[in-house]
Design a protein around this nucleic acid. Structure first.
Lengths: 126, 126
DNA sequence: GCCATTTCTAACCTTAGGGTAAGTACCGCA
DNA sequence: TGCGGTACTTACCCTAAGGTTAGAAATGGC
């Protein structure tokens, strides 16, 4: 700790890395779509989610829900019945992440036209 | 347009899809890191970005910058010199996307501990 | 006794993301 | 003459993400 300036710079780097890898673990396509599907905080069953998220395979649904549970984004409730019933719901943490995503969602919604335009103009140039 | 309720529901679905695929095109790891690197809106050269984004290969840098240019997120300026000089800067659109990402960034920064805790607790359970 | 139902696991296989390394183009300078 | 410096491009290869399919477990209904 001889040089506080250097130290805090290194700390910033470290936090940057930490935050980035946290985002990397939490911000993939399926997580995003699942948060969307659970946004209203009503618990949903496995098969319901499977229907609500178009295009997701059973494998990715299981896998993503497991990871989200591990990261503390969803709560998993098993009812000891036959046939089995399992409900998934967003935790507070997951709900807050959903709200954070809102910014990106709104940006995309508001700028679809501009992006389309930029792409057309780029393609016309070559 | 016989049933306006059904029609607007279908439109919502369509917008959802559009927004989701827009986000998919724009929200990958390298785009995220490049926006971070250009956040202060100062133009940077190719080699500078290569140094500023740790771990990015030349190939992915070129590829990502091309796509970002196409989507209208970055502006590319070529100076007709030898050796070549090319500068990249965020467009307004790109800068706004960066601001939208901020929400996720702050969420991650604020909740690293909770996530770590959730993961430890999950791992302890099995 | 057999089948349906629901969630989850395990095996296999295909694809595509991304790394490495070499090559291109251009000109000024030693 | 040939090397250096910059921004790519291309070709090759490997890993890992993710799709598909099959099956396990448990029990109530026919």
């Amino acid at each position: 700790m001889a040089n506080p300036a250097v130290t805090s710079y290194a700390d910033d780097e470290k936090i940057d890395q930490l935050v980035n890898q946290t985002i990397a673990r939490v911000a993939d396509k399926w997580t995003f779509l699942l948060i969307e599907a659970l946004e209203d905080r009503a618990p949903k069953r496995f098969s319901q989610l499977s229907r609500d998220v178009p295009g997701i395979s059973q494998k990715m649904l299981t896998q993503t829900l497991r990871r989200m549970e591990r990261e503390g984004l969803v709560l998993r409730t098993v009812f000891p019945e036959v046939p089995p019933r399992v409900e998934y719901a967003l935790s507070d943490l997951g709900f807050e992440l959903g709200e954070a995503f809102c910014g990106v969602w709104h940006w995309a919604e508001a700028n679809i036209d501009k992006i389309e335009e930029a792409r057309a103009s780029y393609d016309a140039r070559r």
